[in-house]
Amino acid sequence: MSDPAADPAPKGGDIVRRHALPVRIWHWLNALSVFVMLMSGMMIFNAHPHLYWGRYGANFDHSWLDIGAGHIRIGPLTIPVPPPIGVVIHGRLFAFSPILTIPAHYDLAGARQWHFAFAWLLVVPGLLFAVWSLVRGHLRRDLAPRPAELRPRHMWHDIKDHARLRFPTGAAALRYNILQKLAYCAVLIVLLPGVVLSGLMLSPTMNAALPWLLALMGGRASARSIHFICAMGLAAFILVHLLMVLLAGPINEVRSMLSGRYRLPRERAE
């Protein structure tokens, strides 16, 4: 985001510089890698659509989540689900339909190749972005919530505005609002590190290299559950994120993430 001090009192309708180049580059590399990771990850999950807690877990053990034909079971709850979840094609159960997966047919070996190759695209630019965010103050300046923003009254006000689809206008649109900040921080600080570290702990060699991290996760079956939960959290974020881009004006929003130039929304006539 641009520094308001360098750009005094911009108002609605002005074109401003919004996203720094590293943010834009990382956003698109990350978008590509996260999509491939989610799609190939769903194919890998299809090979054994059961999740467990603890050090081990296989068919005879007690799972906490199963995806079956037309339903998901979470603990004692069985929830009917429509396609593309829990579909049966030529007698084979697909927890996630092939229309969602890479490759688009049952291919565990192929999905693993995609997953582990694109993991590099997730991790290497992610680490560079993390270092840049810390060093250049992106995290502190743009993403970290301020104490005033965390007051319940402010949060409630923001939630009401979001529910009414009243987005910030004019100079207020230069900054992320508190719900955006919390969502981005959850992705950057919890979900992305969580999905990477739990994913590493699914590797038997990395278990030998970092046994303390495996213990911290509560064992390999738990790491696999954590990996899945973080991935679903990222998928949920992406759905909301895309919806918000559509509602906030997709052309202006996508342009600002490509060129960095953003037209500040005009103030509403109250």
Binding site: Q113, A117, S203, P204, M206, N207, A209
Partner: peptide
């Protein structure tokens, strides 16, 4: 994809001691 996977093997070998024991 092969390149990425070769990188994974080399990286894992590089960060894992030869004698590091599986849990």
């Amino acid at each position: 994809l092969e390149f990425g996977n070769a990188g994974t093997r080399l990286a894992q070998r590089a960060v894992t001691d030869r004698a590091a024991l599986a849990p």
